[in-house]
């Protein structure tokens, strides 16, 4: 799942450490989220969306799997 965390963060000139502190996770978690190595839980996604004053769908880009 792709996300726009890095883009939003750079747009608003927020460091990874600042975002990490605001949503109560480690900086390593933010790095992993930005790299796409880790998918946030619904709770963390909600916290991040709230922090950026936007919606979860606007940050996390869900890809529907075709079966």
């Amino acid at each position: 799942m792709e996300n726009r965390i890095a883009a939003l963060r750079k747009e608003r000139r927020i460091s990874q450490a600042e975002l990490a502190e605001a949503v109560a996770v480690t900086r390593q978690t933010i790095i992993s989220l930005e790299n796409g190595r880790y998918n946030a839980s619904l709770l963390l996604a909600h916290k991040i969306a709230k922090y950026f004053e936007t919606t979860i769908e606007d940050i996390f880009l869900f890809e529907e799997e075709e079966s």
Partner: peptide
């Protein structure tokens, strides 16, 4: 606390 509560950890 953050380290222990961190969901990735």
């Amino acid at each position: 606390k953050i380290k222990e509560q961190d969901e990735r950890e």
